[in-house]
Design a protein around this nucleic acid. Structure first.
Length: 871
DNA sequence: AGGTTCACG
DNA sequence: ACGTACGTGAACCTA
């Protein structure tokens, strides 16, 4: 019976996958990286081999894995990582769901199962491939049994293949002799002691000469070198035991039905459900099933005539809810405009049977579509889209109050994801999968359908998780405020920016020369690698902290290392200048629009905590701490006839902490408008308030920051350059001073460990899966995240409320002034000269009243002719 | 593509 | 013993 079978060493491959991939978790907090990696390796093998049969073998008792085995031998066995152990039953269930045969037998190791099955199959005349991460299995290799060892190299899986001849080539011994080789040299990672003082080289020499340990023992007096001869005599028992340990049984006695191992369709509905639950997005594409439940595509229709479109919009206007999307004309529809990426039409859905792709062609113009969509958005009860802010570049939306952005909803439900596509939402909320090869109109209809159909499940989930108010009252209004801000943009003086950059350029060239002179050669200063060679090898500085790739050359390291080496000072200055030039001077210049303004993007669905992020360019990290960098802010200017009014919250995060912790002393201090850092210093350092030194205050400030970040004594000690012990004492004193904060932070972490997430004052959730990790570092990270997220997130909530309120007041009052930037705790308003007082009033009122806390929210304001002056 | 560095809150 | 402060984005280098 000819044919081909693939045998997989289950635990070994799972183990490989586990250590080869970063930690992944699904929404339930299950760890999935090993399962994911296993499946990837398996699919790759199956595609290459296309076998008729497949079996995965496991040990009955989850073994300690290779890296632990030495420890086990030494009697200090560590348990298998919990995250890995949890995944063993999962992979078995997944395999069963795919109809794949698994085998495990009490009293037999997986190795023996693999060995025996491969021998039996070979005898039937089959070709066998054994997949394992374990080189011990090489002893099974023959002319027809191939051992395949997957290696994960830089994210890619490569497989080393060994037939008998390949083993011989690589190790100079036959597969059978490989056992004897192992018996002599041992395998620290595999519980095989071997013979002391015999390593790989000696063992290879002995086995190539004598072919077995028994034969070598018979000629033990002739064995060279003498050291090995002596060792073999003395430790013959060890050698024998090692050989027993290393030998894989190929004649074990157990029942195995090849027919059960026959591969059928592994892409079953059951498997599909599993993959979905585990969130293996990439792997889902392998399934052919368009939609396990139904065929929504039957309701999809293409529209190219005005008459039909009229009819559809009339019906849509009466619907309770509609889903809409816009599409561009890039590739297909209108060849005339190909490449210009203007709008090509819309998708609209108001029921399963009413899903349309309407093209802007023939007698349908885009203006017509924009007008109809605007009307529909006003008349329906729920108007849903993905990424409304992006769509607003093409469409007008009338009914802002009842708009529903499914992108934003999906983000709130899980803010940890990297991206949120409508395909994701369709899959997660509707159990729908779109085929990659679907026609364009199908994709358009599908997006509109998903926008419509996901309203209900998303709403239900938001309500269930008590985020509905957050969604409707904070996030949805914010969509439009952010859109306004993007449209407004901020004016930047291109010429001033250019000359600033040119000045930097001159200084950079000078510095470059000086650095080359000092170093005695030219090199790329921006290359940490080359710089490391110069500093640590050529100049003999002793390296401090190390990174994955070598010595760290980060500024704080270099400063501590050699504060008064002139070359270090120059390098740091060079870094500073090149950063300013490339990222800010040249970088920003590239974004100035024809209208003289930069229209950056403000992203609502990026951060884990609820903050907004800023890209293309990032306008939230314009320099301010160093004077030279701060000067850049002079190029950010209001238009003629306007000034800037800048308003920022004073210590908003600490105030939020005071409120949330209900710490009596901190609340009182804020009510009395005391200097918090000075007060903290006075308490922590037992110094009368009036006598607190600048240094003490500075240190106390660092402690306050640390608390917000989820304090650790190590972090604080690094920041303040003090002993960890000393930092510990600071923290202890701090918690004695503010006991409410201590108990609040403890409670927060406790809640997070129980529930798996933390919550802001306004109900925003952040899952913290790291808390379940068995890895100390990861778990500690989870604890800090749990402490920080409610504080940072609440502050973000408050700012979002404030900025919408400010924006709305400016618009309601028909003012010329406009909101142009948000920088987490700061708003910048380009203010018409006659409106300055009113704008200040609005900013102060709306920001300070955005939330009513146990402590006052305080806003500082400045005006100026540019951003530099206004801060 | 991933790592390092550094700009901001 | 483990090796860090929380949250971002951009430029540059290295592979």
């Amino acid at each position: 019976m000819a044919g081909k079978i693939v045998l997989i060493d289950g635990h070994s491959i799972l183990n490989r996958a586990f250590y080869g991939l970063p930690d992944l978790t699904n929404a339930e907090g299950l760890h999935t990286n090993a399962v994911y990696g296993f499946l990837n390796i398996m699919f790759k093998i199956l595609e290459e081999e296309k076998p008729e049969y497949l079996t995965v073998a496991f040990d009955v008792h989850a073994p300690t894995f290779r890296h632990n085995m030495y420890a086990e031998y030494k009697g200090t066995r560590k348990p298998m990582a919990d995250e890995l152990r949890q995944q063993v039953p999962i992979i078995k269930e997944v395999l069963h769901a795919m109809g794949i045969k698994t085998i495990e037998k009490a009293g037999l190791e997986a190795d023996d199962l693999l060995g025996t099955i491969s021998r039996r199959c070979e005898q039937e005349g089959m070709e066998v491939s054994v997949i394992s991460g374990d080189r011990d299995l090489l002893q099974l290799a023959t002319e027809h049994v191939k051992i395949r060892i997957p290696k994960t190299k830089q994210g890619k899986t490569e497989v080393e293949d060994y037939y008998a001849k390949d083993v011989k080539e690589r190790y100079q011994v036959t597969p059978k002799e490989f056992i004897d080789l192992k018996a002599l040299m041992g395998d620290t990672s595999d519980n095989i002691p071997g013979v002391p003082s015999i390593g790989e080289k000696t063992a290879t020499k002995i086995i190539t000469e004598y072919h077995s340990i028994e034969n070598a023992y018979e000629h033990v007096e002739e064995v060279k070198p003498p050291r090995a001869s002596k060792a073999l005599k003395e430790h013959w028992d060890l050698a024998v035991m090692s050989k027993t340990l290393a030998t894989i049984h190929v004649d074990a006695d157990f029942a195995y039905s090849l027919e059960e191992a026959r591969l059928g369709n592994i892409y079953t509905e059951e498997a599909y459900a599993y993959f979905q639950r585990l969130q293996f997005k990439n792997l889902l594409n392998r399934f052919d099933v368009t939609a396990p439940s139904n065929a929504v595509e039957d309701g999809f229709t293409e529209i190219r005539e005005r008459k039909e479109a009229d009819r559809i919009f009339a019906k849509a206007g009466k619907a309770l809810a509609v889903g809409v999307c816009v599409f561009k004309n890039t590739k297909n529809v209108l060849p005339l405009f190909a490449g210009q990426a203007g709008p090509g039409g819309i998708g609209i859905c108001f029921g399963r049977e009413n899903v349309f792709c309407i093209y802007a062609e023939n007698d349908i113009t885009m203006d017509y579509l924009v007008e109809r969509v605007k009307e529909v958005s006003e008349s329906v009860q729920v108007f849903s889209m993905f990424d409304i802010k992006a769509a607003m570049s093409y469409l007008e939306i009338g009914g802002r109050e009842h708009s529903f952005d499914a992108l934003v909803a999906a983000y709130l439900l899980n803010p940890l994801k990297n991206d949120y596509t409508y395909e994701d939402v369709a899959r997660e909320q509707l159990d729908l999968i779109l085929e990659d090869k679907a026609e364009d109109y199908v994709k358009v209809c599908y997006e509109a359908y998903t926008a419509w159909a996901s309203i209900e499940p998303l709403t239900a989930k938001l309500k269930e998780e008590q985020m509905w108010q957050l969604f409707t009252e904070i996030e949805m209004p914010l969509v439009f405020t952010l859109y306004d801000m993007e449209q407004n943009g901020v004016k930047v003086e291109a010429e001033a920016l250019r000359s600033y950059g040119a000045q930097l350029g001159v200084k950079i060239v000078e510095l470059e020369k000086e650095i080359y002179d000092t170093a005695g050669e030219e090199f790329n200063i921006n290359s940490p690698k080359q710089l490391g060679v110069i500093l640590f090898e050529k100049m003999g500085l002793k390296g401090g902290r190390k990174t994955k790739t070598g010595y760290s050359t980060a500024a704080d390291v270099l400063e501590k290392l050699a504060p008064d080496y002139p070359i270090i000072t120059k390098i740091l200055e060079y870094r500073q200048l090149t950063k300013l030039k490339s990222t800010y001077a040249d970088g920003l210049a590239a974004y100035i629009n024809e209208d003289g303004r930069i229209h950056g993007r403000f992203n609502q669905t990026i951060t884990a905590t609820g903050r907004i992020s800023s890209t293309e360019p990032n306008l939230q990290n314009i320099p301010i701490r160093m004077e030279l960098g701060r000067l850049i802010r002079k190029v950010f200017v209001p238009e003629e006839g306007y000034v800037f009014v800048d308003a920022d919250y004073s210590q908003i995060e600490l105030r939020v902490l005071a409120h949330c912790s209900e710490d009596a002393q901190l609340i009182q201090a804020y009510k009395e408008a005391q200097d918090i850092h000075r007060l903290t210093a006075s308490q922590v350092f037992h110094t009368p308030f009036e006598e607190v030194t600048d240094l003490q205050r500075r240190n106390a400030k660092a402690v306050n920051f640390g608390i917000v970040y989820g304090i650790s004594s190590y972090g604080l000690s690094e920041d303040l350059s003090i002993d960890i012990k000393e930092a510990k004492q600071y923290i202890e004193q701090y918690f004695k001073t503010y006991p409410g904060i201590k108990s609040f932070l403890d409670d927060t972490v406790k809640h997070a460990k129980e529930m798996g997430y933390v919550v802001t004052l306004f109900g925003r959730r952040r899952p913290v899966p790291e808390l379940k990790s068995s890895n100390f570092m990861q778990r500690s990270f989870g604890e800090r995240v749990a402490m920080n997220a409610p504080i940072q997130g609440t502050a973000a909530d408050i700012m979002k409320i404030a900025m919408c309120a400010v924006n709305n007041r400016l618009k309601e009052n028909h003012m010329k002034s406009r909101l142009v930037l948000q920088v987490h705790d700061e708003l910048l308003v380009e203010t018409y000269h006659t409106e300055v007082e009113e704008v200040k009033q609005i900013l102060k009122e709306e920001m300070e009243q955005a939330a009513s806390l146990e402590v006052p929210l305080v806003v500082d304001m400045h005006t100026g002719e540019n951003w530099y002056e206004a801060k």
